Computed example of a mutant assay.
Amino acid sequence: MKAIMDPLEAFIDETIQISLSKGYPPTTFQRMRRQYGTVNAIERLVTKGEIQSGFKKLLSLGLKDWSIEAAVLKFPERFSIDARECAEFRLRAAEQGLI
Score class of each variant (00 low, 15 high):
Phe75His: 13
Phe55Glu: 03
Phe11Gly: 05
Ala94Glu: 04
Gly49Lys: 04
Gln52Ser: 14
Lys48Arg: 15
Glu88Ile: 00
Ser60Tyr: 03
Glu95Trp: 00
Lys56Ser: 00
Glu85Thr: 06
Leu59Val: 08
Leu61Trp: 12
Arg92Thr: 02
Lys48His: 05
Arg34His: 05
Cys86Glu: 02
Pro25Cys: 12
Arg44Glu: 00
Leu8Asn: 07
Asp6Tyr: 13
Phe55Thr: 04
Lys57Glu: 15
Glu69His: 04
Arg31Lys: 03
Gly54Tyr: 09
Ala41Gly: 06
Ile68Gly: 12
Tyr36Gly: 01
Arg44Leu: 07
Asn40Phe: 07
Gln17Asn: 14
Ser19His: 15
Ser67Thr: 01
Thr28Pro: 10
Ala10Leu: 13
Glu88Phe: 01
Lys56Asp: 07
Ala41Asn: 04
Phe11Asp: 06
Asp13Cys: 06
Leu98Pro: 01
Asp6Val: 11
Val46Ala: 09
Glu77Ala: 11
Met32Arg: 14
Gln35Val: 14
Tyr24Met: 14
Ser53His: 13
Trp66Lys: 09
Pro76Gln: 12
Lys74Asn: 05
Ser67Gly: 05
Ile68Met: 08
Met1Val: 04
Ala41Phe: 06
Pro26Tyr: 02
Phe11Leu: 14
Ala83Met: 01
Lys64Phe: 08
Ala41Met: 02
Glu50Lys: 13
Gly37Trp: 11
Gln17Lys: 11
Ala10Asn: 15
Glu85Cys: 05
Leu58Cys: 10
Ala93Leu: 09
Glu88Asn: 00
Ser21Val: 14
Gly97Pro: 00
Phe55Asn: 01
Glu43Asp: 01
Glu9Tyr: 12
Val39Cys: 12
